[in-house]
Nucleic acid binder design. Structure first.
Length: 882
RNA sequence: GGGCCAGUGGCGGAAUAGGUAUACGCGUUUGACUUAAAAUCAAAUGCCCAAAAGGCGUGUGGGUUCGAGUCCCACCUGGCCCACCA
């Protein structure tokens, strides 16, 4: 038996053992055990594991192993978020199939994940690009479509002229294409969207019920961006409509959204977004139509980058000849068009109050528009005297007719009430959140299971049969939008020869003519398939449901299987998903709940955002910095146990911070593991001479060394509580302290073996391989001892317990963690001057008496009068004196 | 510009119902072992002062308190996210 710690020998051995024994497979029900669902964000199969993956998976694995030992039936699954653009890019660059590229990566990453020693249940693996998974992605999407939650609309998308393709927001870096670095434009295209906005209030409201970290909740609240305010109508005063049939009710006024109705008397002009539809309707009355059209054209072709750079410079043009009436002042005011007003928020039009809004102020200055003060900062409101620019705070309303003199809040209420009474406006709520744009003009994604049929749209009968039939225009011709029937799912992604995007921005799938051409499921005539694919965030919006029932061919997951595990008890992931994946999947589950597909409206009970690991130089790891730490090399050199334990030791896990990797510090962790190993060796030589009694866990024998016993119980307490709160760093510190004491202790003490076993068990979640090895050796030695002393060996016992991870987690005795004698700090006027030792539970008088016997403290008391004593029992005595 | 978070030794970090600041680890110094080095073991290690005594110390300045890293106010610095959101 080798006596040096050789991680290369023991780590593969136990990884194989655990997998063969199926130790980490989660059965749906285990008698007498509560279920616990621990979820980690599944990886994108990008090639090979980096340190970030280790941090994301190996550290939660500590918790998974701990919970098993505490007696929970733990579901700790893994899978691959396998659709996505990098596969397509790799295909274009290297001429390989995206499917091949993805599958090769998955295969390689599976091997690496096993080397990590994470206790995943591989029998439940989910891969989103497999037809048996995306079949159900398509099925759920169709339920949403039938319920009206998925719809098509013309939307502005990011368009790269050079690559001739649509880009996702994540692919636009500082207004440039991430691939070719040319400027990105906005282009209007027909897109699929999901009605996440319908759930804005539910998403906001249910957030309050979740025990999540406050900063995550706050980030989601800000993202949803609910604002209370009012919609106000500003009638168009002097426009003669040339053709009476063109007049619609909405042509007669400009409707704006404002959160500050109290400033309405200061609204000296209106501004429309360049895309505002009213402009077209008013064309015949616009005297400078050429100029206006030119401005709108320019705004359209402005790149994202230009918008960012020119944020401070306001541009715009007046609609000459058109004026509106401020319903409060009855004054005629001009209407402008400017790109600082966004079509996507509110009504796409604003009332400009340059006196009390910085942007309006800048615009008014630029174009010499009137600025009127209607709010006066109340004295002492914030002590700051305005106002070189606009005063945006609250205050007393002035110059506002009958509302003058009110405070902002009261004025808001009264003015809105007045507007409502006169049918000029109404209370309203607005959100920053926009509906989720889910179609992508890309190959490597889940096909949208929709068929377009011209004949069905043109046949009057089909609309009678299906009154909810939706139409969609393709190349100027209307088609009926037909969902693919359930028995024809999945719509499989076809093989292509060429994944290049087309000049017209349509999906590469549109080139698969045989695939596009399809029989209409409704009329049987010639029809064509939707060629866009779904955003990959859809694939990841429900994968955690599939883990509960991965093989099901009848439904996305059986209700009774989901009921065993859902909702997820703890979800660990990266902060970058706070307002994307985390919000999307909450919405997705709420939508499923509305359709009675699932019974709960929140998918995750607890959520934890981890930090990130930086390079040794404190910079983000990147190839260009040359500071990338390769986990494979570290595992080779120091072992998986040392790598994961170092990552756990580096700092608290549930904190969104950044920790630099340190080649020195990981060596310290390795040294610790070697000390634990060597201690086992030393004990073995000692113990072979001695007969030991029964195994110790949870049944502490009478111990001679009280101090060690106390430390052992304190260690159980500290390690247990720290793991529960994800403070692995301090749990490990405690294990180190405990180990240091054991090393110093008398190895001939028969209790040492039990103390050592305790160490191994507490160490097991952190460094599973070395702990299993040492534990199995102890078992072997123990069995040998028993044979020698003719004790009968319980065969059953050795059969059942084949791993340290089937051992129960130790419990501590609260009576044994308290010290008999305590050191009390003596302060004089708040300054520490010494310590006295007294019995635990000693009162103030006893402590003060002990101070009298301590000359090094007494000298500070000479010549002064004690006026007060503050005593904190067993901790501190502060003597206040003059 | 808005929101959130964080500033503690040479470094990662520890310490909250306000009560010994710097646990644990790294690094550094000295010693033991060694022909030597590595490894290991032992001791020291916040700053000022040769040392003792003493003083000063948790980004800065105030405040509350017998007592503040922790609570309150103002400010400085850094990080992350969102950004013309009316």
């Amino acid at each position: 038996m080798s006596s040096t710690y050789d991680h290369k020998q023991i780590e593969p051995k136990w990884q194989k053992h655990w997998e063969e024994q199926g130790i980490f497979h989660a059965a749906d029900v285990v008698r007498g055990k509560k279920n616990f669902y621990l979820l980690v964000e599944f990886p994108y199969p990008s090639g090979n594991l980096h340190i970030g993956h280790w941090y994301a998976f190996a550290i939660p694995d500590i918790f998974a192993r701990f919970m098993r030992m505490r007696g929970f039936n733990v579901l700790f699954p893994i899978g691959f978020d396998a659709f996505g653009l990098p596969a397509e890019n790799a295909a274009l660059k290297r001429g390989i199939n995206p499917r091949t590229w993805t599958h090769d990566n998955i295969e390689y990453m599976r091997k690496q994940l096993r080397r990590m020693g994470a206790s995943f249940d591989w029998e439940r693996e989910v891969v989103t690009c497999e037809p048996d998974y995306y079949r159900w992605t398509q099925w759920i999407f169709l339920q949403f479509f039938k319920a009206g939650l998925a719809y098509q609309a013309d939307s502005l998308v990011n368009w790269c002229h050079s690559c001739k393709t649509v880009l996702a927001n994540e692919q636009v870096i500082d207004g440039r294409c991430e691939r070719c670095e040319s400027a990105v434009m906005q282009r209007k295209m027909k897109q699929w969207l999901l009605k996440i906005k319908d759930f804005a209030d539910a998403l906001l409201h249910d957030l309050e019920t979740l025990p999540w970290p406050e900063e995550i909740k706050e980030a989601q609240r800000n993202w949803i961006g609910r604002s209370e305010g009012a919609l106000v109508k500003f009638p168009i005063s002097n426009f003669q409509f040339p053709n009476k049939s063109q007049i619609t009710n909405s042509n007669l006024y400009v409707e704006v959204f404002t959160t500050r109705p109290d400033t309405i008397f200061g609204a000296t002009y209106l501004v429309l977004a360049p895309e505002h539809p009213l402009i077209e309707n008013l064309e015949s009355g616009i005297k400078n139509l050429e100029e206006v059209k030119e401005y709108i054209e320019r705004a359209k072709t402005k790149t994202e980058m230009e918008r960012g750079q020119l944020q401070k410079e306001k541009t715009g043009v007046e609609l000459a000849g058109i004026r509106a009436v401020n319903p409060a002042t009855k004054e005629e005011i001009p209407i402008w068009v400017a790109d600082y007003v966004l079509m996507g928020y509110g009504t796409g039009a604003i009332m400009a109050v340059p006196g009390h809004d910085a942007r309006d102020f800048a615009f008014a200055q630029e174009f010499h528009l009137p600025i009127r003060k209607v709010i006066s900062p109340e004295v002492g409101a914030n002590g700051r005297s305005p106002v070189q620019g606009a005063y945006e705070g609250e205050g007393a309303v002035v110059n506002s007719g009958k509302f003058t003199g009110l405070d902002s809040q009261t004025a808001r209420e009264r003015i809105v009430a007045w507007l409502e009474l006169n049918k000029l406006g109404k209370r309203s709520t607005s959100y920053k959140l926009r509906d989720w744009l889910i179609s992508r003009q890309r190959y490597w994604g889940c096909p949208i299971p929709i068929i377009y049929c011209r004949r069905c749209w043109e046949n009057p009968k089909s609309k009678i049969q299906n009154p909810k039939l939706v139409g969609s225009e393709i190349d100027g011709v209307m088609h009926a939008v037909i969902p693919v029937p359930g028995d024809q799912l999945p719509v499989e992604l076809p093989e292509l020869d060429d994944y290049k995007p087309r000049d017209d921005g349509r999906s590469p799938l549109s080139k698969a003519a045989d695939w596009v051409r399809v029989k209409c499921p409704q009329c049987g005539g010639a029809a064509e398939r939707e060629t866009d694919t779904l955003d990959t965030f859809i694939d990841s919006s429900w994968y955690f449901l599939r883990y509960t029932d991965p093989g099901n061919e009848k439904v996305f997951a059986a209700q009774e299987k989901m009921a065993q595990w859902m909702p997820v008890n703890l979800y660990s992931g990266g902060a970058e998903h706070t307002t994307m994946h985390l919000l999307y999947s909450r919405f997705w589950i709420k939508a499923m709940e509305r359709l009675k597909l699932v019974p709960w409206c929140e998918p995750y009970v607890r959520r934890l955002n981890r930090g990130i690991i930086l390079g040794p130089d404190g910079q983000k790891m990147s190839k260009s910095h040359g500071n990338v730490v390769d986990p494979d090399e570290q595992v080779e050199r120091l072992g998986a146990d040392a790598v994961r334990m170092y990552l756990a030791f580096i700092g608290p896990y549930a904190t969104v911070g950044a920790y630099p990797w340190s080649m020195n510090s990981i060596v310290g962790v390795r040294r610790f593991l070697e000390r634990v190993w060597m201690l086992g060796n030393k004990l073995k030589t000692q113990n072979s001479k001695l007969k030991t009694k029964e195994t110790f866990i949870n049944k502490y024998p009478a111990v001679q060394k009280k101090r060690l016993q106390m430390l052992a119980h304190q260690t159980i307490k500290k390690v247990t509580e720290d793991i529960e709160s994800f403070k692995f760093n301090t749990a490990i510190a405690q294990l180190m302290t405990y180990t240091n004491e054991l090393v110093k202790a008398d190895l001939r003490d028969p209790a040492m073996r039990d103390y050592y076993t305790l160490l191994i068990v507490l160490l097991a979640p952190f460094a599973p391989h070395i702990a299993e090895e040492l534990w199995q050796r102890m078992r072997f030695a123990h069995a040998a001892d028993q044979r020698r002393s003719n004790t009968q060996i319980n065969a059953d016992d050795s059969e059942n317990v084949s791993s340290i991870f089937k051992e129960p987690w130790p419990k501590f005795d609260p009576r044994l963690i308290l010290e008999m004698k305590v050191s009390v700090v003596i302060q004089i006027n708040g300054k520490k001057r010494g310590m006295v030792e007294v019995l635990r539970g000693a009162g103030e008088e006893e402590v003060f008496a002990a101070v009298g016997a301590a000359p090094e403290i007494q000298k500070y008391l000479r010549g002064i009068t004690v006026t007060k004593k503050v005593y904190v029992k067993g901790k501190l005595l502060n003597i206040v004196a003059q």
